[in-house]
Structures are given as structure tokens and as C-alpha cells.
């Protein structure tokens, strides 16, 4: 048996367009479905230009939020300058709780559903959860700062705070599961199941802690106890902050996704090398 080695340029047409790391690698004899999927994903990512555009837009909207939030908007009523966290905290929470973990859940379902099964979804789910966990940690930190200046405590056992903390642990667990070894499809199944259990748990935790203790402001930005009204430039700035978080999320997820592709290509290259070493072992014995 011989190994097909695509070390030279243009040896195989399908490999022309793929970045270096995948290009140099020797191919495994025969092509599996997973292999084909990785190849086409690598090709697609090489042609992808929109990531950079999204990244630049994300940066610009973030800067805009910063300028508007710090210098243009007036101090928020009652809350004063602390109220400027309005331009950070809600958007981050939205990005973490709905955007990121929603995507992870849907992508995990799409892997488990046989008709849409593709490793693409597993990568998306993982990338989104990682970014989500980052946003969630930032949400907790900004929330804690807000709590300290508003209520005088860093932490309070209120419903949403507790939920957020539990959720963070859930997703850290999910990321730990992702790092466990196995074949790519076995891993994807395991990951998806873990993500789904976490997703099932979210409404449950939400419901029970909500009931358990409700001291916090209601979820809407119109909070009766603070009589806070959002309008005019404040609303506009908040809106921009949501756009910024979304763009940055898209950018980071895409970046992480491409990163995972390269990791897998590297792994495949590594496998090919070990196969060659194995072949040498058997040649030596002969």
C-alpha cells in the first residue's frame, strides 16, 4: 500500500486553494466522509473575507459605544455615572445568554438530528459556547461592579445572578467535556448531549431561582423601583452596544471556528505521520 503524499504544489486540484498547513500534509489513503467535510470547510474558510469586515465593524461600533457612552450621554437618572454600565452590561448579557448559548443549543440539535449531521455544527456549537462563556464572565463582573455601587454589595443571592453563575459553571463543564478525546463523531455526540442537558437546565434553574428569591430589578430596562426610563441618546447608545456585541460575537466565533479547522487539519497531518511511522515499523520486521 502506498501513501498519497500531496507535498508538491498542484498535485491535487482540490488542494490548490487550501492554506499551507493542510496543503503540505500527506493524505490518508482513501477518503472518509469526515475527511471530505474537513477539506471543503478548509477551502471555504480560505476564501472567506467577511470575517475581517465584521471584525472591523465590531471594533468601530465598540469605539462608537465608548465615545457616546462616556462623553456624549448625560449621567443616567438616579444611577448617576454608574448608569453608564447600561451600555456594557445588558448587551453582554444578551450576547452570552441568548446569542451564544442559543446558537450552541441549536447547533447541537442540528448535529444530533441525522439529516443535518455535520461536524460543522459541532465546531459552531463549541466556538459559540467559548465566546459565550467569556461574555458571561464579563456579564458577571460588570454586574458585580454595578451591584457594588448601587446596592453596596458585590454579590447578592438574587435570582438572575444565581442563574448566571450556575450557567457559567454549566458551560465550563461543557468546555471540559469538549476536551475529552475520542473519534470526531463520538466527540460531537457527547458534546451535543452535554449542551442539550445544559440548555434544558437553563429554564429550570431560571424558574426555580426566580421563585426562590426575587429582589432584583425586572428583566426589562424599565424598572419600576428605580423609575428608570431609557430614551433619546441613551437608547441609541444602548442599541449600538447591542450591535457591537453581536458583531464581535460573530467575529470571534468565526475566528475560533477557523482555528478549530486548522487544529483538525493539524491532527490529520499528525495521523498521517504516525501511519507512516507504523508502516516503517512493519517494513523493519519484514
Amino acid at each position: 500500500m502506498t501513501l498519497e503524499v500531496n507535498a508538491t504544489k498542484g498535485n491535487s486540484e482540490s488542494y490548490d486553494q487550501i492554506p499551507n498547513v493542510a496543503h503540505v500534509e500527506p493524505r490518508l489513503p482513501g477518503v472518509s466522509q469526515e475527511d471530505g467535510e474537513l477539506d471543503s470547510a478548509l477551502r471555504a474558510s480560505y476564501h472567506c473575507r467577511w470575517r475581517t469586515i465584521v471584525g472591523v465593524l465590531g471594533l468601530l461600533t465598540t469605539l462608537l459605544t465608548l465615545v457616546l457612552g462616556l462623553f456624549v450621554t448625560p449621567p443616567v437618572q438616579v444611577l448617576g455615572n454608574t448608569g453608564r454600565l447600561l451600555y456594557v452590561h445588558p448587551a453582554l448579557a444578551w450576547g452570552a445568554l441568548y446569542l451564544a448559548f442559543g446558537t450552541t443549543t441549536v447547533a447541537s440539535l442540528l448535529w444530533l438530528w441525522k439529516r443535518t449531521r455535520s461536524l460543522f455544527w459541532d465546531r459552531v456549537a463549541g466556538a459559540s459556547a467559548e465566546v459565550g462563556a467569556l461574555f458571561l464572565a464579563l456579564t458577571l463582573i460588570t454586574g458585580s461592579i454595578w451591584g457594588r455601587t448601587t446596592w453596596g454589595v458585590w454579590w447578592t443571592w438574587d435570582a438572575r445572578l444565581t442563574l448566571t453563575a450556575v450557567l457559567l459553571v454549566l458551560y465550563l463543564g461543557y468546555m471540559a467535556v469538549r476536551s475529552v478525546g475520542g473519534s470526531p463523531s463520538a466527540k460531537a455526540t457527547r458534546n451535543s448531549i452535554t449542551a442539550l442537558i445544559a440548555a434544558v437546565d437553563v429554564p429550570i434553574v431560571h424558574f426555580s431561582v426566580d421563585w426562590w428569591n426575587t429582589l432584583h430589578q425586572k428583566a426589562s430596562v424599565l424598572t419600576p423601583n428605580l423609575n428608570l426610563r431609557v430614551h433619546g441618546i441613551i437608547a441609541v447608545t444602548m442599541g449600538i452596544s447591542f450591535v457591537a456585541v453581536t458583531l464581535i460575537w460573530v467575529y470571534l466565533v468565526r475566528l475560533r471556528y477557523e482555528n478549530m479547522l486548522l487544529e483538525q487539519a493539524k491532527e490529520r497531518a499528525y495521523i498521517s505521520i504516525s501511519i507512516q511511522e507504523r508502516l516503517k515499523e512493519s517494513e523493519d520486521v519484514k
Partner: peptide
């Protein structure tokens, strides 16, 4: 069973289990 099937044990189990157990203990 997940840890049994994938040869990881002991430490991962409580990490996954405790957050899921939290609402149960609360109720």
C-alpha cells in the same frame, strides 16, 4: 454513563453534575 463510555472519570462527573443538581436541591 458518559464518563464510562469515554474513559474520563471522577473529576468531570461532579463538575457536570452539581450545576444540574442545584435546582433540585433548591426545590
Amino acid at each position: 454513563m458518559m464518563s464510562l463510555a469515554s474513559n474520563v472519570r471522577e473529576t468531570l462527573l461532579p463538575l457536570l453534575f452539581l450545576p444540574v443538581a442545584a435546582p433540585v436541591v433548591l426545590a
